[in-house]
Every structure is written in structure tokens, then in C-alpha cells.
Amino acid sequence: MQAARGASLSDAHTGPESHVRPVRWAEFAAVAVFLLVIDQITKLWAVATLVPGQPQELIGSVLQLNIIRNPGAAFSTGTGFTWFFTTLSIVATIGVIWFARRVRHRGWAFALGILVAGISGNLIDRLLREPGFYVGHVVDFLQLPNWPIFNVADMCINVAAVLIVILSFRGIGLDGSVDGRSKGKPQNNAEGEAR
């Protein structure tokens, strides 16, 4: 059956919607799993190797290894509310994964993958580490001068936040649309290469 002279029905669907970019689920998942594994391996290494109260220089005094157990959030705030941060992390992880199902832009796939790795990395600590389930303390072991001790998961959260701000500032939507333009409209080569 022909939709128009010389064109099949499948050809009739070659408008803007036929050029929808594929969902970037695999890229999101690969980034998230890779960084989560790095976070957990480095924490296992830190727990097995470092001694609390005995910092070791990694890059002189600029970057030291100094293990602590943090029951709170950044800057050790809210140390009595570990259960709250655990709950918040669970909700945030589910929310990021839910949004990632709609991602069609590589930048967003990477940003959300990095973010979920960071959130879930610290969530695993809160669920499984001492002093007990749901109230575990996060392992932090990287120390910069005049800055709270942190870990790989914390770095992921901060990098993801920067990427999200950049993508939002550039007007790039989760679906790859730019500044309200249709996701099916052709973009310039520089923008296309990023997707």
C-alpha cells in the first residue's frame, strides 16, 4: 500500500519525529556502574590501609589520605540525622534513574550517570557500614587544605552538579532539544557531535 505516489507507508514517517535520538540508557548505566565501582574499591582500600588520625601525604600537603567516618552530610553537618540522609539518598537515586529513562543527550547521560554513582556510593555506606543498617557512616579519606575530607562519591556529586548547570545554562533538554527547538530539527555539527 502506498501513502503517496512512489512512497511506502514507512517512508511517510520520515518527518522530524523519525529522527528522535536513541535513549542514552547504556551510556548512563556504564558511567554510573564504572564510577560506583571505583568509589567502593577506593573505600575498601582506605578502610584496609589507612589508620584514623594518621594522615599520609599523597601529593605533598596539597592532597593527603586521612580516613574518617562521617555520619552526617557535607562539612559533617547533621551528624544526628544519618537516617534522614539515607532516606534522602534513596529518593534521590530513584529520581535520577527515573529521569535517566528519558535522556537522549549524551551530556545528560554522563551527568546523571555521574550523579547517581555519587549518591548511591555514599548510600551504600549508609546502608551497610557501621554502626548499622540505615545509619552507617560514610568513609571519607581524601583531604585538601582548608576543605572537608571527602571521597570519590563526593567528587562525582560535585562534577555532576557542574555538568548539570552547564547543560541547563546552554538550554539543552534531556531529550536533546536546544533552547526549545524540536528534538527532530537538525542541529549544527558542533551540537550534533555532543549527542
Rank of each mutant, 00 (worst) to 15 (best):
M1S: 13
G6E: 02
T14W: 02
G15M: 08
H19M: 05
R21F: 11
P22K: 06
W25Y: 05
W25P: 04
F28K: 00
L36N: 01
I38N: 11
Q40H: 13
W45V: 14
V51P: 04
L58W: 15
S61Y: 00
S61C: 01
V62F: 15
V62R: 09
N66P: 10
I67E: 09
I67N: 00
A73W: 04
T77W: 10
G78W: 13
G78R: 13
T82R: 03
T82E: 06
W83S: 13
F85W: 09
L88I: 13
I90H: 02
V91K: 03
W98T: 15
R102G: 06
H105W: 08
A111V: 07
A111F: 04
I114P: 00
V116Y: 11
I119G: 04
L127T: 07
E130P: 06
G132W: 00
V139C: 07
P145H: 07
N146D: 14
P148I: 09
A153K: 02
I157P: 02
N158W: 03
N158K: 08
N158P: 04
A161T: 14
L163I: 04
V165H: 00
V165P: 09
R170H: 07
G171N: 01
G176L: 09
G176E: 11
D179F: 11
G180F: 10
G184N: 02
G184A: 10
P186D: 10
Q187I: 13
N188Y: 00
N188H: 01
E191P: 06
R195S: 12
